[in-house]
Amino acid sequence: MPHPNPTTPSPAPRRATLASALALPALLLAGLPARADWSLLNMPVGVTPVSREVYDLHMLILWICTIIAVATFGAMAYALVAFRKSKGAVADTNMTHSTAAEIIWTVIPVVILVFMAFQAAPALIRIEDTRNSEMTIKITGYQWKWEYEYLNEGVSLFSSLAADSNAARRKNAGIDPRSVENYLLEVDEPLVVPAGVKIRYLITANDVLHAWWVPDFAVKRDAIPGYVNEGWFQVDEPGIYRGQCAELCGKDHGFMPVVVKVVPKAEFDAWLAARKAPAAVAAAN
């Protein structure tokens, strides 16, 4: 299921959180805290072809690992129970090696890994394919904001942490972060892109490394000063998608969110035109 806005704060009261956390050792055995927001336990499926593919890959390897874990840990648990000295188990000291066993537990993992590689490699090739894009946006990371340039359109904008988050995130600000909508995940001006269009982005940085990440798009690419990286995404569903800078970039690394507003094509064109107008005025002056 897509998450048009996966970052809505969970509304639960704080006391319940504390209680469940305090009872944790017991609860951990019984299961996870009942009040947790279950969608927050796993990777979002996301809203792009790539993100769905990555999600499927993630679930596949997660399940493979789980199955191997169940088998391995099951055998271990069995050994811990069945071969205890207190139950009268006597050590079979002649059991010291077995070439057959060694071959089996080498070959089976090899087969599993080859299978995984065959799933992962084509996905990687598709993700890296930036051809046939319809528009290009240049993203530049700064300490601590993003700049978005619509190449060949003459439009660009800066995007930094929204004012209310910025006020609440000061040390001992006295503002409860929970009272701020989309705390730390809101910007003054989001990146606006059209829905249903393959968008190529070029990314670089002005000072130090940054990384542009939107979990719902499953794209994360480093912004490197002096070099340009590229990637792409295509979102079919209009909505607001949020992410964060994902490469340590100094003291406000935690405070440079990414917000992408995906709008229908027509709306986007109108927005772009409106954006161009003041720019044209400025150029005329």
Partner: peptide, 28 residues
């Protein structure tokens, strides 16, 4: 869970939906 749900590392403060598991982790 935090990582899968999208919490970056090396941040001193986080969006509120990550609060529960961070609290658990700190207690641990």
């Amino acid at each position: 869970f935090l990582g899968l749900a999208g919490m970056p590392r090396r941040i001193p403060d986080y969006a509120t939906q990550f609060a529960d598991w961070n609290m658990v982790s700190s207690i641990g």
